[in-house]
Nucleic acid binder design. Structure first.
Lengths: 234, 234
DNA sequence: AAAACACTAAAGTCTACACAAAATGGAATC
DNA sequence: GATTCCATTTTGTGTAGACTTTAGTGTTTT
């Protein structure tokens, strides 16, 4: 049957279901009709209903279990998606001119805390890179990163004077797992100097650990310049 | 054909595609074979390939355009999903005992900055609620919230002495749009007092604006206690 | 009672096919 | 040379039907 003449699409179903939840017609914790019945109601196939409900479950509105059916989540476990762009893109998106500057790059044995954090073997070798990202002449981000040499042997030959370690890594090694945190920290002397802030100032900070199939690849701490906010809409 | 005997599922296809991207077989920016050809290769239907590629595009690995085809995103525009639980759930998830305390609740005309922020009409009435969320006896979050009376008339009768404004709102009014930001701010005298921190200390801060069909519903500022970090894995 | 078992309802996934919609690239026209 | 228009390709979405997997529920056995 062609869908040009008045059919119900999975998007329509999503909207209707959401509306019913919002209107209170379908109370939290209550069970929805099964797919078959909904298909009949919307005069479409179960496939279409399935897609609608599956996506709503994905978005955190519904909970689905085989045999048990589909129920409305009581506390809509909403989730926010933040896009994590590369610094260059983030700067350019705001109209700024991106500039990168290497501060230091050296091969060292991993410090204790890093060995613990990444579950490294004692005395594994790392490349420690510190660098700055600017938007025009304004400091945008100070990055402090360690790369595990055993996981990324090529890093020994890498030259970080022109390209940032993040961009280099993305081009060079894949990763499978990431742990990402955000917090507020106080600017120590170093961070304050590079971000051009008074010492002790609050700094929005990101911490990122990346693995490839269980192997720790890199640990990065990213200190954002004054006034930075991470925003999303949904 | 039954799928018990060796068929390719959309999950298999996702894995294979990801593996090819990671291995470099399919370079960033390059075009993938079209769905028909992939279906032939995996000996399944186009529907199955479609689902696999659609989900990968959703997850930020691929870009798909009709007629243009499917290509590997050069900078895998990865996105992090943070779940935004209600404070009670967040506290209880860490094993703490949740406790709520109202600080103040009063009806006032919206201040200038809020009128501007939410695009209110001049002198619209709001309910201003300030409250604390504890984990055991440790301050977990100080919340400072305005609720627009015109959008939520019931708020005039609400009693926030036992239930937090957020939980109340979720039960009472639906919302359609949210803008959520995170930043690092310095604790002013009030925030410092409630969170039991020295004044000027960095505070991880969330700001949330909620609309219902274009109508501003509420503005909330959430100050998190010492050591808070927002974490996700992917 | 408690444990093991079978039945069955519901979601999960796949096949096979069809038509819809977008957008690219080239052809026709100005 | 630029613009408009159109055919074609590729993804998007729907139908119809089948088999699979999970997990409640009720029954039987211990």
């Amino acid at each position: 049957m062609p869908q040009s003449t008045e059919t119900t699409s999975y998007k329509d179903i999503k909207k209707t279901v959401l509306a019913r939840i919002r209107s209170g017609e379908w109370q939290p914790d209550s069970l929805l009709p099964n797919e078959q019945d909904l298909a009949a109601e919307f005069s479409c196939t179960r496939t279409t209903v399935n897609r609608a409900l599956r996506e709503l479950a994905d978005e955190g509105y519904l909970e689905r279990r085989r045999k048990a059916g589909t129920r409305v989540l009581s506390a809509p476990q909403r989730q926010a998606r933040f896009s994590i762009p590369m610094v260059r893109d983030e700067v350019e998106a705001t109209g700024g001119t991106y500039r990168y500057a290497l501060v230091s790059a050296e091969t060292t044995v991993a410090p204790d805390w890093l060995t613990a954090r990444l579950a490294l073997r004692p005395d594994q070798s790392t490349v420690h890179v510190r660098c700055m990202h600017f938007s025009g002449n304004t400091p945008f981000q100070y990055e402090d990163r360690w790369i595990v040499v055993d996981s990324v042997p090529q890093v020994a030959q890498a030259d970080f004077s022109a390209i940032g370690p993040n961009e280099w890594l993305i081009q060079t090694v894949p990763f499978t797992n990431v742990e990402l945190s955000f917090l507020a920290s106080r600017a120590d002397a170093t961070v304050a100097r590079f971000l051009d802030l008074p010492e002790g100032e609050p700094v929005f900070t990101g911490e990122r650990i990346t693995w490839l199939e269980g192997q720790p690849v890199t640990y990065a701490k990213m200190y954002f310049g004054a006034g930075y906010r991470m925003t999303t809409q949904f």
